[in-house]
Design a binder for these strands. Sequence first.
DNA 1: ATATCTTGTCACCACACAGTGACTTGAGCG
DNA 2: CGCTCAAGTCACTGTGTGGTGACAAGATAT
Lengths: 210, 210
Amino acid sequence: MTRDRFATRAAIINSAAAIVASHGIAHLGVNALAVAAGCDKVLIYRYFGGLDGVLEALGTERMLWPRVELSVEENGGDGSLAEAVQSLLLEEWAALSGGALMLQSAVSELEAATNSLAPATAEQREEQHAKLIAGLKTEHRVPPYVDLAALIELLSAALTMFALRAAQSSPDRRGAAPSPRFDPAAPAGWRRIEKLLGAMTRALLDADGH
Amino acid sequence: MTRDRFATRAAIINSAAAIVASHGIAHLGVNALAVAAGCDKVLIYRYFGGLDGVLEALGTERMLWPRVELSVEENGGDGSLAEAVQSLLLEEWAALSGGALMLQSAVSELEAATNSLAPATAEQREEQHAKLIAGLKTEHRVPPYVDLAALIELLSAALTMFALRAAQSSPDRRGAAPSPRFDPAAPAGWRRIEKLLGAMTRALLDADGH
DNA sequence: ATATCTTGTCACCACACAGTGACTTGAGCG
DNA sequence: CGCTCAAGTCACTGTGTGGTGACAAGATAT
């Protein structure tokens, strides 16, 4: 026993994040969290006041939505607005697909039960997107008839949905996938999505398209 | 007591659907279901073999994904493919937003826990979309460079995401919504989505656009 | 009417859960 | 040293859960 308050506090938060990421927020209980953190459950009540406090700390001290940076056009794009939007979305998709905690917080945002992760996730996402859109608008000329915020929000929502479905179905049908009609998680399906994203952003955003 | 096996069986399924629709699949338990159905919980085991059986029956005997019909161009559209796609998606959105059970089954599709609703929901959605796409391809000429299936899947995923978020946040911020940066649930935000949908489908699908 | 089968009721078990009070151990300080 | 206070442990209560077995009530057939 280290007998260090901040260390055990961090252990509790880390274990909570691990449990939420692997088993979902519904399976986060005081007892299981205590044994995972290697401490007594009474410390959870002492330091956080209960499970809600742990979730609240998770929401403020952890990244629930991927942080995507507006790269200074180092990517292989042609520098157009369409390219920039597409690469941002793909970056977001990659981060989302790689982070189990982000995915679980995204689905927790959809559960009717009142948990403290949902508002934090939504807020982080909105803040991220607002910053990206502002950056895009300064670096590119966006056609006045295009609602860039709505476009990014819609495409991001679709990609989030795909990532969630993929994360749910991948542990099960590992390998023996009967390959349904359209599966964005499979390489072939994902290539179709990439092509579509390119076509859509180009058709909407490129100046010569209008 | 009616002492009617089929009646109580139906009561159990109805109550299960109500509970899942209102409180989510996570809060569906044998005890609560029994009192909601007004019968003893042992009958759940007798007739369904347990909760899994009830969920399986729900998946086969209930509509989890909205059934959207390929209307014979009675809507006020101009008959173009873009109009058809858009009206189909809007119909799906309306049905999705109106049916709590559909929404809950959609979020249950995203929960990591293995439940029997997820596959049923995914299958119904895929079947629906496949039928719609086939219908669209016979009635309209779709440009060869457009992946219609991917397009519909992506837009449907985004709209589903919006519907889920709206369903989760609506019971809380009823009325006193501080109106975040972009809220598709609010009339103003929704109008932006509608406009964007129109612009996207037109830019991609209308023949003269290329 | 008596026997039988089904439908429904009740009582019960074992278990996991959240939450609390009383306790022990250790570190720091006079 | 011994005092004090925080950090950590243990034992316990009450409640809700999934699940099962034994039993009562109504219907049906011989």
